[in-house]
Design a protein around this nucleic acid. Structure first.
Lengths: 231, 231
DNA sequence: AATATAGTGTGTATTTTTTACACTAAGTAA
DNA sequence: TTACTTAGTGTAAAAAATACACACTATATT
């Protein structure tokens, strides 16, 4: 039966909204396109999905080819399917996002030549982007802002060891809102998902703060669905 | 420049996970397929998107053609892109969901003949479904369960006038959890998004309950993002 | 008319969570 | 030693969440 039916092929793409946090600034990973259309424009890392790969796999591959970043786990957040979003025809795109720690300064080096370079750009200096990528970016930002307010995912953006002040700064940047220091600390420490280390910050010209680590095991226990409504 | 570039066409589909609530049961809208592959199987209402329509528009059109339901607003929730999810080739599908009031018994009548019929099936009696539709359904159910616990969207499933007990039953069905009557009422009434009516339930063989209406205006004011973290 | 039945409707005390708020301690640099 | 800068800390008040049980009322049944 199957052989009598027409065969389908498709063209669709993946775009990645990758956030990083560095020097107190929230950044986003962009590439400079080296291909028409929009050659030499800034764009989100994104490309066509192959016929024989799942979209999740494509996301990883594409991010690697365009930026050199490897094995980054991303979550899908929305699919953009306006008719004219791509000048060459009907191309819908599935958007993924991730949050990365920038410490260690992983090098960015496109592996394919679809991109001429890949760089971290502060979110507040976002340039004009190719296609509908500004819209995609905006929705991705919205997504993490939402998510961070009910799941402490911010750790993914910080170095492995961090101070509470750094953590708070990050929350403030994403939520675009000042937070109270004492309440913030109380709340975070109460979650019980931070390990206090015996180490202190180094190289600062003032009192050094304690360093903390994120305790992934306790975290996943804590956030296996906890809903409102008592019994 | 554009004319030198290859033209792209694509094949992709929409699937709809539509919830209804009737006689104390949560139901889902299914069709019986009248086309290969999976002819005569149960399936979610879904079909291919046309080249010249946005995916949001396609969702509405497809739901109408397969079930006769018109102008239903749906939200996208996930895109399924495994390589072998469709036997005829590479077809990714964008899944949408909606919650509907079943009162008034809108008639279900496929307008195209891709479906031989469309019916409401209790979620607890879900049959075997075509393609990967069971997976899609499960993720859609997860979605509303999640959503209902931070936004009172349950009204969309109830008739325009409803009793607090009906509302509570619905929450209990979706959350799969018994709730305390007094606390539930206190909480709901405190939101201030219910209008108490001068009417009472009719045709019951016990004390009739007051009827309420959902106050959409107050609701949208209340739920314009309210995040945790004080100041 | 009396009674059984089934769901409606209500209040309070306790605990937990959230919020507001300001000063001292520690380390570095001059 | 002093000036500077950030780290670190507690409490009281308000708000929200929770646990819990019984009398009321409309109808159907006899």
């Amino acid at each position: 039966m199957e052989t009598l039916l027409p065969k389908f092929d498709s063209v669709f793409s993946i775009d990645c909204v990758i956030f990083g946090f560095d020097e107190g600034e929230l950044k986003i990973l962009l590439i400079e396109r080296n291909e028409e259309p929009f050659k030499n424009w800034w764009a989100l890392p994104g490309y066509m999905v192959e016929q024989d790969e799942s979209i999740d796999h494509a996301a990883e591959r594409i991010l690697y080819e365009l930026t050199g970043l490897r094995g980054i786990y991303m979550d899908q957040f929305y699919t953009f399917g306006d008719v004219n979003r791509h000048p060459q025809g009907r191309v819908i795109t599935v958007a993924y996002y991730a949050m990365l720690r920038l410490s260690g300064n992983k090098e960015l080096k496109p592996v394919s030549n679809y991109a001429s370079k890949a760089v971290w750009i502060p979110v507040k200096d976002l340039p004009k982007l190719a296609f509908d990528h500004e819209k995609i970016f905006a929705q991705g930002f919205e997504k993490i802002r939402n998510k961070i307010s009910y799941q402490p995912i911010a750790f993914e953006l910080l170095p492995e060891k961090f101070t509470l002040t750094q953590l708070q700064n990050l929350y403030e940047v994403i939520l675009n809102k000042k937070l109270d220091k004492r309440n913030f600390r109380k709340k975070m420490l109460n979650y019980g998902i931070l390990k206090e280390l015996d180490e202190k910050q180094k190289g600062v010209s003032y009192r050094a703060a304690k360093l903390y680590k994120f305790d992934r095991r306790k975290y996943s226990k804590l956030f296996q669905k906890e809903l409102t409504f008592g019994r």
